[in-house]
């Protein structure tokens, strides 16, 4: 019965499910996102009460099957090893639950919460509403008010500290954007006290939580200033395009990065070079 239910649902799926998701489960898996290399499903690990993300890299029909299997396995293994390394070093990333490299999937911890991108935009969006109504200010002048921007600056600092911790372990992320960071709600004890102003409460909540780095599909082991600087540069550009009004606060990221990571100063010098010439060192490709 449950199997036929799954079969029905899978007809609505835009893609055929990976074999592992065709077996019985207490609830059908849901497709969360599709990337260039793979798909991400939300499902369960071992027990109905244990949500997980299943990252699936489907076989590529245009590649020779043996090469395809080998590449898929190598990429899954490298991502999982990076995640393990981060966990061992105490960098906040999802835990790895299970891997089937031959089948092309990996189950990892499901991170509750919202992407940092959504949190920042929610916060900025609400600020526009309230301030424009009350003061009719120009958006460009917003960041000048240090007090008003304090929660955002605080988040930027947490982001910088997290990246610093990551680089300290000898890993570069390779695709740092505000979509590849989650804001995981802190334990209920630390929840903010209601202060009677629903708007400010929502605003504050949008930026609350622990910063968790996700999607290490492009991560590599590297200790070079160049790679680290490019990591920061990619995030800086991502900030500029996704959150133009938060751009001027990016210095807070770099400040916290510097405070967390002892070798940061040479990376920041290199960042200047990278800014001048762009992400690619060579002009090829």
């Amino acid at each position: 019965m449950a199997n036929s239910m799954l079969a029905c649902l899978s007809q609505d799926q835009p893609f055929p499910l990976p074999k592992v998701l065709t077996h019985w489960s207490s609830a059908p898996a849901t497709l969360i996102t599709q990337g260039a290399e793979g798909r991400l499903y939300k499902t369960t690990h071992l027990l109905p009460s244990r949500p997980c993300a299943l990252k699936y890299r489907p076989p590529k029909p245009y590649r020779h099957p043996i090469l395809d299997a080998r590449l898929t396995k190598a990429r899954l293994a490298s991502e999982a090893k990076v995640l393990e390394r981060c966990r061992r070093e105490g960098v906040p990333v999802p835990a790895v639950y299970a891997i089937d490299a031959a089948a092309g999937w990996m189950m990892i911890e499901w991170i509750e919460g919202i992407p940092v991108r959504v949190g920042i935009n929610t916060w900025l969006g609400e600020r526009v509403d309230t301030e424009e109504n009350e003061e009719g200010e120009q958006p460009a002048e917003r960041g000048d008010n240090d007090n008003a921007a304090a929660p955002l600056v605080d988040l930027m600092k947490r982001i910088g500290a997290t990246i610093g911790a990551l680089h300290k372990t000898g890993i570069v992320h390779g695709d740092l954007t505000t979509s590849n960071m989650m804001l995981k709600p802190a334990s209920p004890v630390e929840e903010i006290q209601p202060n009677g102003h629903p708007e400010t409460e929502n605003k504050a909540k949008a930026l609350q939580g622990d910063v968790i780095l996700i999607d290490f599909g492009l991560a590599t082991q590297s200790q070079s200033d160049e790679d680290r600087a490019v990591d920061l540069y990619v995030l800086e550009r991502a900030f500029a395009s996704t959150h133009p009004r938060a751009e001027k606060l990016f210095d807070a990221v770099l400040q916290a990065y510097k405070e967390t990571f002892t070798k940061a100063s040479s990376v920041l010098v290199r960042l200047e070079d990278v800014r001048m010439r762009g992400r690619k060192r060579s002009m090829l490709g």
Partner: peptide, 16 residues
């Protein structure tokens, strides 16, 4: 909890 998660990733990475 942290130990458990490291144990499980260790098992998951067997042979990789």
């Amino acid at each position: 909890k942290q130990c458990e998660s490291l144990v499980i990733v260790g098992m998951a990475l067997r042979g990789l």
